[in-house]
Amino acid sequence: MISHIDHIVLTVADIERSVSFYQRVLCMEAVTFANGRRALKFGQQKINLQLLGQEPRNIANVGSGDVCLITNWLLADVIDHLQQEKVEIIEGPVEKSGAVGAIQSVYLLDPDKNLIEISVYP
């Protein structure tokens, strides 16, 4: 029935601060859509950003996200990039289980304390 993820939504305290972080640290493309909403595009997916209470159907809190992103970079290059951007790696590299097998991952927090896992398949 389900073939893939189109987008996810993260609840953040400051949308432009988050846009800047995801552009700078994760090299995502910032986009604007539907009445000025902001998102970050990568591949054929995107992360939509919302403020607390902006979407009444969603009761998520700021910083409640936990996302695993697959990179086409070498994990060593990801680590070097994060260090250059002065982003703390809070765990990793460690082996984890991805959707289609074992992955190597590093973890960081975005400005709102959403947990971001960046991973590679061997």
Rank of each mutant, 00 (worst) to 15 (best):
I2E: 06
H4T: 15
H4E: 15
I5F: 10
L10P: 00
T11N: 00
V12Q: 06
A13M: 08
D14V: 10
D14M: 09
I15N: 12
I15L: 15
I15V: 13
E16P: 02
F21S: 04
L26W: 00
L26S: 00
C27D: 05
C27A: 07
M28N: 06
E29W: 02
E29L: 08
V31P: 02
V31I: 15
T32C: 03
T32E: 15
T32H: 04
N35M: 10
G36I: 10
G36H: 15
R37N: 15
R38A: 08
L40I: 07
K41R: 14
F42L: 07
F42V: 05
F42S: 09
F42D: 01
F42W: 03
G43F: 14
Q44F: 00
I47M: 07
I47A: 05
N48K: 03
N48C: 09
N48V: 02
L49N: 00
Q50Y: 01
Q50N: 05
Q50K: 08
L51R: 13
L52I: 10
G53M: 00
N58G: 03
N58H: 12
I59C: 08
N61L: 09
N61H: 12
G63F: 02
D66I: 04
V67L: 14
L69H: 05
L69Y: 09
I70P: 02
N72K: 11
N72D: 14
N72P: 04
L74S: 12
L74C: 05
L75R: 01
L75C: 07
L75D: 00
V78W: 03
D80M: 07
L82T: 12
Q83T: 13
Q84L: 15
Q84R: 11
Q84K: 13
Q84T: 08
V87M: 10
E88N: 07
I89D: 07
I89L: 12
G92Y: 02
G92W: 00
E95Q: 13
S97L: 15
A102V: 14
I103R: 05
Q104E: 15
Q104H: 13
Q104W: 06
S105P: 03
S105L: 04
S105Q: 04
V106L: 06
L109F: 07
D110H: 01
P111Y: 04
K113D: 07
N114Y: 01
N114F: 02
N114P: 03
L115H: 05
L115N: 09
E117Y: 09
I118N: 01
